[in-house]
Design a binder for these strands. Structure first.
Lengths: 215, 215
DNA sequence: TCGGTAAGCTGACGGCATGACAGGACAAGT
DNA sequence: ACTTGTCCTGTCATGCCGTCAGCTTACCGA
């Protein structure tokens, strides 16, 4: 499917090579969590991985290239987020549960990958299509499912027809992503995690169904 | 109030110095719009401003320091966003108008300052308190006003009392900020600007009042 | 008009990251 | 032990960073 792993100069990487490569990715990932993206240097990553800068450049064109790789891996895992929405029933108590679990799952995923997601967000906002695509890959899985759910509700006449499901789903998902990436901020400020989740769930429910949830 | 403008080594800047300083800030601002934050180099900014790198370091400790300056200026202008919420009536038609104008004003402000806001967002997400403070300065003006509005509605019994106004306002503002910073993305994808705004306004209205708007 | 003083700017330099290359180290098969 | 292809590193040219001494410019009081 994805073809073999190759070095920058075209050689196929063997077992040892792949291990080194992965170690570099892991170290980079760690560095992204601990220091500003702008200050992450190839030489530091290489040192941390117990190798030399030259080795880094054998597997990646530059830091950005390696980041894209990590992001790609994460995006693949992120596809599982679809499961949070797909086949859900948005009516009655089940609807409230669906909203709650969506919020929960989303925040968890974001917390687990916050460092790399920050960089992806920045890249996407700066207009880099490669990052944008990755961000889409993650968000689309949720957005599309939500859009479908809303369309169904519209078809049954339970939601105003003049709403754009895509825009609504997109806005909700953007909200979740934004809140998720500033979770620490909310905490530092006055808002507790416990208060945040029900509010988000409420907004999601209101947005999708147009009605207050029955808890 | 703000004291005099000073160089890094403590001298007070005169008229000429301030002009140079401002020119550097303008050029930096421009560069942030046209190239990735990570790739903005002091030497490029200096060249663009028709001066030397050494001059840059006379006024700013580093690129980040200069960015903070720009962000500070923007945050001051951003305080006017409060006007979009303060003293608003959220009942009936006026409520819908309030929601619409809030969304409109927010997206406009973001579009006008997207480059610097991206960087502020990143800095805040990375945990830098200085950037976080600036982000707060902008968002708080809106968040606090919204929180007050909700509390009033709660006092009148028009909104559930078990909701946290702060969390709700924070979530809504975070949503607006997120959607605003990915406006281009939404367009590139299938969602049109014209569809986006009413949906956001609807969500804001639903979140604040708990009810569907009367248009 | 004429210094004197402080502001303003720059050339130059050591230091470090980048990115390329060639050659040596290593593992696996014969 | 030898060969082959993979893997790593020493080294080097290049370019940016951040700092300093020192030069130029503007302002001001005598």
């Amino acid at each position: 499917m994805t073809g073999q792993v190759r070095t920058v100069d075209g050689r196929v990487a063997g077992r040892r090579g792949q291990a080194t490569r992965q170690k570099l990715l892991d170290c980079l990932s760690e560095m992204l969590s601990s220091s500003p993206y702008r200050d992450v240097k190839v030489i530091d990553v290489a040192r941390k991985a117990g190798t030399s800068p030259a080795t880094f450049y054998q597997y990646f064109p530059d830091v950005e290239g390696a980041v894209l790789e990590i992001a790609e891996q994460m995006a693949t895992e992120g596809a599982q987020l679809t499961a949070l929405v797909e086949g859900r029933n948005w009516v009655g108590k089940a609807g409230w549960a669906a909203a709650e679990e969506l919020v929960e799952g989303f925040l968890d995923f974001w917390r687990a990958n916050d460092a790399i997601l920050r960089v992806v967000d920045l890249g996407a906002a700066e207009g880099d299509k490669r990052f944008y695509k990755i961000r889409m890959k993650i968000l689309n899985s949720v957005t599309n499912s939500l859009t479908e759910s809303m369309k169904e509700l519209q078809a049954k006449g339970k939601v105003d027809k003049d709403l754009s499901p895509a825009a609504m789903a997109g806005s909700l998902v953007a909200m979740l992503a934004a809140v998720a990436s500033h979770q620490k901020g909310f905490q530092t400020w006055g808002v507790k995690q416990a208060e945040l989740k029900p509010n988000l769930a409420l907004l999601v429910h209101l947005g999708i169904t147009g009605k207050k949830p029955t808890k």
